[in-house]
Simulated scan of single mutants.
Amino acid sequence: MAASNRWLMSSLAYYLDFFTAPLFAAVALCIAPVHVGQMLAGLLTWTLLEYAVHRFLFHARYRQEHWTHHVDVRAYIGVSSWKTSSAYAVLLLLAWLAGLTSAFAGVVMGYFYYISVHYVMHRPDHWAYRFITGLIANHELHHRKGIEKNFGVSSPLWDHVFRTYLNAQAPRANGEQA
Rank of each mutant, 00 (worst) to 15 (best):
E176G: 09
Y114A: 06
V34G: 11
R163V: 12
S102G: 15
A75G: 00
H126L: 15
R172Y: 08
Y129F: 14
H160S: 05
L49P: 09
S85M: 09
W82K: 04
A75N: 01
V153F: 10
R74F: 00
V53H: 02
T47S: 08
L94H: 12
G152N: 01
A75E: 03
M109Y: 14
Y51H: 07
H118N: 11
A105C: 00
A87Y: 02
H139L: 03
F58C: 08
T164D: 13
S80I: 10
K83T: 10
Y129N: 03
K83P: 00
S81A: 14
K149Y: 06
H66Q: 07
L43K: 00
G146K: 13
T45R: 02
T164W: 05
N150L: 11
R63I: 03
L166S: 09
G146S: 11
A128R: 07
W46I: 07
K83N: 06
V71G: 00
A178Y: 14
V161P: 04
H70T: 13
G134R: 10
H126I: 15
R163Y: 05
L141Y: 04
T101K: 00
Y62M: 12
H35T: 10
F131M: 15
H143K: 07
G146D: 09
Q169D: 15
W67Q: 09
Y119T: 15
F112E: 12
Y51P: 08
E148D: 08
L49W: 01
M121Y: 12
H59T: 08
A41E: 11
I115L: 10
V161Y: 00
V79T: 05
T84D: 07
L93E: 05
R172K: 11
K149T: 09
L57I: 05
V73G: 09
H70R: 11
V90Q: 04
W67F: 09
